[in-house]
């Protein structure tokens, strides 16, 4: 198993946001996490990536037989965890190329691999930018600075392509994308899919899942996974709305 989250509780500013998450992800799988705004999807993504503001109060996360919670955010990344941020930040003065060169070489160093030379690196960048149909001019621009919402999201997937993660978490990568961009991004993600990696797609629209077809769909509600199922669960949700879960939940509680 690639990832196992057991009874995960996390809080921020004194509020418990995640209230006992359980999730198993095998290599080769695509999982979709859906849920209404504020249900804790981004919190879960942040905890996986190691954001320190979120305090884990209970539970554990096993990733590749390692205790993920013990690793620093950079070491998690070096171990192959990638987060495509819901709101990618702008870093003025640091070019995309410079960021990726530093990142790729830090990751390679950590793994005991030789650093890429300038030529190898540029070849890698060119190849990967084609994958997400990203114009070369974005390579020399400052990270996300002045990018449109859609360009930022596409840039996240480009970085993902370059860093080649084992576990990718895409947090609402579809929001802000028009239909063409959505197709390009989904295409990129699909092409990066291998037997030995896995993707967790966080979204609250079913739309993206037409393009990235999940093996499993989980509905997060009030910090817990309220329902899990196959890809048809997404369609059902789309049709009935989240109220269905909320009501369903109420029924469970009443029962």
């Amino acid at each position: 198993m690639l990832l196992e989250i057991k009874n995960l509780h996390a809080r921020i500013a004194g509020n418990e946001i995640l209230k006992g998450i359980n999730l198993k992800v095998n290599a080769g799988e695509v999982h979709a996490i859906m849920g209404p705004n504020g249900s804790g999807k981004s919190t879960l993504a942040s905890v996986l990536a190691g954001r320190e503001e979120f305090e884990v109060t209970q539970g554990e996360i096993i990733y590749n037989d390692k205790n993920l919670l013990e690793l620093s955010p950079e070491d998690r990344a070096r171990e192959g965890v990638f987060l495509a941020f819901q709101y990618p930040v702008e870093i003025p003065g640091v070019s995309n190329t410079n960021l990726l060169k530093t990142a790729v070489n830090e990751i390679r160093k950590y793994r005991g691999e030789q650093e890429l030379d300038a030529m190898e690196f540029l070849t890698l960048l060119r190849e990967k930018s084609k994958l997400v149909e990203l114009d070369q001019k974005f390579l020399s621009r400052s990270v996300n600075e002045g990018f449109s919402g859609g360009e930022k999201k596409r840039n996240e997937i480009f970085q993902m392509a370059v860093l080649n993660p084992t576990l990718a978490v895409l947090d609402e990568t579809d929001s802000g994308l028009d239909i063409d961009a959505l197709r390009i991004v989904a295409n990129g993600v699909n092409k990066l899919k291998r037997k030995d990696n896995a993707t967790i797609v966080v979204t609250h629209y079913q739309r993206l899942l037409n393009y990235i077809v999940p093996d499993f769909v989980h509905v997060l509600y009030q910090g817990k996974i309220a329902k899990s199922g196959g890809k048809e669960l997404a369609l059902e949700l789309e049709e009935k709305g989240y109220d269905w879960i909320k009501n369903g939940k109420a029924e469970v509680v009443n029962a």
């Binding site: 954001r51 620093s72 955010p73 950079e74 930040v89 990726l100």
Partner: peptide
């Protein structure tokens, strides 16, 4: 910003 770079495998100092 620092967290973003951390998430790409870059230490805080770097």
């Amino acid at each position: 910003q620092i967290f973003y770079l951390n998430q790409r495998g870059i230490s805080t100092e770097d």
